[in-house]
């Protein structure tokens, strides 16, 4: 196998590691593609946030960049009418299930959703879709941090940190469909479980769902 493969993203020719997924190849070369759920170390991509769509020459529909391996000579565009339409809809759908009081959020100005909005010229407010308005109880039982599910985008980054980083196995997904949540066994408060507050999960959260209490606003 050769040491690298040549691909073109947005007219820029880059050399990348063989076997690399397109999303990481782009990000490592400072080409931004929106994403929330992608975890580089994970062998099988989650592919659940549906934000990293790109167009690949020869494929007539947008493809999630986190699921495609780079191939020699691949020609990729990160923007197109089709891509922009899907990303906009996915983004607006996520916002319809997200607490949009940014000024109260500890992640304000350091939020993956804000970054996507800025990069793609999207608005951070409820657009075509009415807010779903799920109600959650705030879990502020740990001493250092809190978990506000109304901001959670279900990317799964905290679960990965909790399992692979901390080996605590406290967080997991539960329920199905629209009721899907990141939660604990029986929905118990974190303080009642074997959480030693390593806070790796807080650091992994790309939005303000898991946050340090000291950074809390209002």
């Amino acid at each position: 196998m050769s040491e690298h493969v040549n691909i073109t993203i947005d007219d820029r020719e880059i050399k990348v590691r063989p076997g690399e997924k397109l999303l990481w190849a782009a990000l490592e070369n400072d080409i931004y593609i929106p994403h929330l759920c992608a975890i580089k170390e994970e062998s099988r991509p989650n592919a659940s946030c549906r934000l990293c769509f790109v167009e690949i020459d020869g494929i007539d529909y947008p493809v999630a960049a986190c699921t495609r391996q780079v191939e020699e000579g691949m020609v990729v565009k990160t923007r197109s009418t089709k891509v922009d339409r899907l990303v906009k809809t996915a983004f607006e759908l996520l916002l319809s299930d997200h607490n949009l009081k940014c000024s109260e959020c500890p992640a304000n100005r350091n939020c993956a959703l804000q970054r996507i909005a800025k990069e793609r010229g999207l608005k951070l407010k409820h657009n075509r879709f009415k807010p779903i308005g799920r109600e959650f109880e705030l879990d502020d039982s740990p001493a250092e941090f809190a978990f506000d599910r109304s901001r959670c985008v279900l990317c799964g980054q905290c679960i990965w940190a909790d399992r692979v980083g901390a080996e605590a196995w406290i967080f997991g997904f539960a329920n199905r469909g629209i009721d899907r949540v990141v939660t604990t066994f029986n929905n118990l408060p974190l303080a009642e479980l074997k959480c030693n507050e390593c806070t790796l999960c807080v650091d992994a959260c790309p939005v303000g769902a898991l946050y340090y209490k000291r950074e809390q606003k209002v």
Binding site: A47, S48, R50, T89, L93, R176, G177, R180
Partner: peptide, 21 residues
């Protein structure tokens, strides 16, 4: 389908919900 959606991906989890509404 909304009831049976697994909830993993954005389009199916939230899209079908809004379609249903």
């Amino acid at each position: 389908t909304q009831h049976e959606s697994c909830g993993k991906c954005t389009f199916c989890r939230l899209g079908t919900k809004h379609m249903l509404d």
